[in-house]
């Protein structure tokens, strides 16, 4: 009997606290598979955010550094300065990257830091119970915009890829989704490209992954994934925004 599918060596067996159906687990898996396939596991240093995925260093078999909320790109910059030969990547949620951490996000990209950012966008603050975030869709109901996000009051969701692509320091910017198998495989290819950019010192790379947060969307995991595929992609079109 040959094993044709199993857990990536990147992830350990610590039980993960994520809710049933949360896409974070999928994101970690495909990042781990890419690093494993590229033989980079032992060279990787991971910077975790504050948020649902803030405990990633306890789930992954790499050195892990927990950054303060929003500061992962700055922490990664410091790590990369000391270890330019290592693979340094920051894993961030939308609250971390485009609410409190917008400054660090834009600045690291503008500096062209040779790091990779994996951006899990589930359009909501998950860990704290489903508040509106920087990427909450217009009309999307959250615990801090109960009748749906109203642009007059709450403004508009931010397209991070669209925002970063024009920056000259940003060399590879792409957006994928994790709502079904074909899209997961496409996301994995983009993640691979991003890490290849870093490996070849080509500068800043970021892959945005549209993710489902069933608990805070108050949907079943399957419905939440369908909502990501049908609704989120309208506001956040998939594709490669920069490949220099």
């Amino acid at each position: 009997m040959a094993v044709i599918y199993q857990k990536s060596a990147y992830l350990n067996d610590v039980k993960r606290h994520y809710c049933p159906g949360c896409s974070h687990g999928i994101a970690h898996k495909i990042v781990g598979e890419v690093l494993e396939e590229m033989g980079l596991l032992e060279k990787t240093i991971m910077v975790a955010p504050v948020g649902c995925s803030g405990l990633l260093y306890d789930y992954s078999n790499t050195d892990g550094i927990h950054a303060l909320h929003g500061r992962a790109p700055a922490v990664a910059t410091g790590v990369k300065a000391v270890h330019p030969d290592k693979i340094v990547y920051a894993y961030q949620g939308d609250g971390d990257l485009i609410s409190i951490g917008t400054g660090e996000t834009v600045s690291a990209a503008a500096r062209g830091e040779n790091i990779t950012v994996i951006f899990a966008n589930n359009s909501i603050f998950g860990m704290t119970g489903g508040q509106m975030a920087g990427t909450t869709l217009v009309g999307e109901k959250t615990s801090t915009c109960r009748d749906g996000r109203n642009p007059q009051v709450d403004g508009y969701p931010v397209g991070v890829c669209e925002m970063l692509a024009p920056l000259q320091g940003a060399k590879y910017i792409a957006r994928a989704s994790l709502h079904d198998v074909p899209h997961i495989l496409k996301a994995k290819q983009m993640i691979r490209t991003a890490f290849e950019y870093q490996l070849n010192n080509r500068g800043y790379s970021l892959v945005e992954l549209l993710c489902a947060c069933p608990t805070n969307l108050k949907m079943s995991p399957t419905d939440a994934c369908r909502w990501v595929g049908e609704e989120m992609t309208k506001t956040f079109p998939l594709g490669v925004f920069k490949e220099e």
Binding site: I65, G78, V79
Partner: peptide
């Protein structure tokens, strides 16, 4: 926070 990253490294 960069200082933190470099020190942790």
């Amino acid at each position: 926070n960069m200082l933190f990253g470099a020190g942790a490294a």
